[in-house]
Computed example of a mutant assay.
Amino acid sequence: MTKRNRIIYWVATLWLALGMLSTGVAQLVNAKEGQGGVDMITHEGYPVYLLPLLGICKILGVVAVLIPGFRLVKEWAYAGFFFIMSGAIFSHIASGDSISSILPALLLLVLTMVSWYFRPESRKHSFVNQ
C-alpha cells in the first residue's frame, strides 16, 4: 500500500468514525430526551424506537472498523454503514427534504466507500476459499 493510499484511508476512516460516532451518540441521547432526533425520524415516517437501534449499530460499527483484526466483522460494519446512509438519503428524498438535509448522509456514504476502497490488505477479508 502506497503512502498516499494509507493517508487517504486514515483520513476517510477517521472522519467516518467521527461522523458515525457523533450521530450514533446523538441518536441514543435524543431517543431518551425526545428532542431533535425524534422530530427528524418521525418526519421521515419512522418510529422513534429505531433511534437507539441506529445509535448502537453506528457505535458498534465504528468500533469494528477501527480495531485491528476481525476482518469479516469490518466488512459487515461497512455494509451496515452503506445501507444506513443509503436509506437515510432515500428517506430524505422521499420526504421532499432539501438538498442541505441530504448532504450529511451523502458525505458519510462517500466516506464509507472511500474508507472501504482504500483499506489496507490487513483489514480486508478474503471471500475466496472460505
Rank of each mutant, 00 (worst) to 15 (best):
I7Q: 10
T23Y: 05
L51R: 07
M113K: 05
V25N: 02
F127I: 10
S126L: 09
W76Q: 09
A105P: 00
G55H: 08
P68E: 12
I59D: 02
H125A: 14
V62P: 03
W15Q: 09
S22W: 07
T112I: 07
K58N: 13
I59V: 15
G34V: 15
T42G: 02
Y46N: 04
M20H: 09
S115G: 06
L66N: 06
G36K: 12
L66A: 01
M40F: 09
F127G: 15
V48W: 02
H92R: 04
M1V: 06
L107S: 14
I67F: 08
L72G: 14
S22V: 14
Q35H: 07
A17M: 06
N30R: 08
F83K: 10
S91P: 00
I89L: 03
D39R: 11
D39W: 00
G61T: 09
D39Y: 03
L54E: 01
Q35P: 00
Q130Y: 10
W116F: 14
L109N: 09
A12M: 01
N129W: 02
V63Q: 05
Q130K: 14
V48C: 00
V65N: 05
R123C: 00
F83Y: 12
L106Y: 09
L18S: 09
I89A: 03
S122E: 11
I7S: 10
D39E: 13
F82V: 06
L111E: 01
V29A: 13
P104G: 11
I59G: 01
A26D: 05
Y78N: 13
K32D: 09
Q130N: 12
A26L: 07
P52M: 03
A79G: 13
F118T: 15
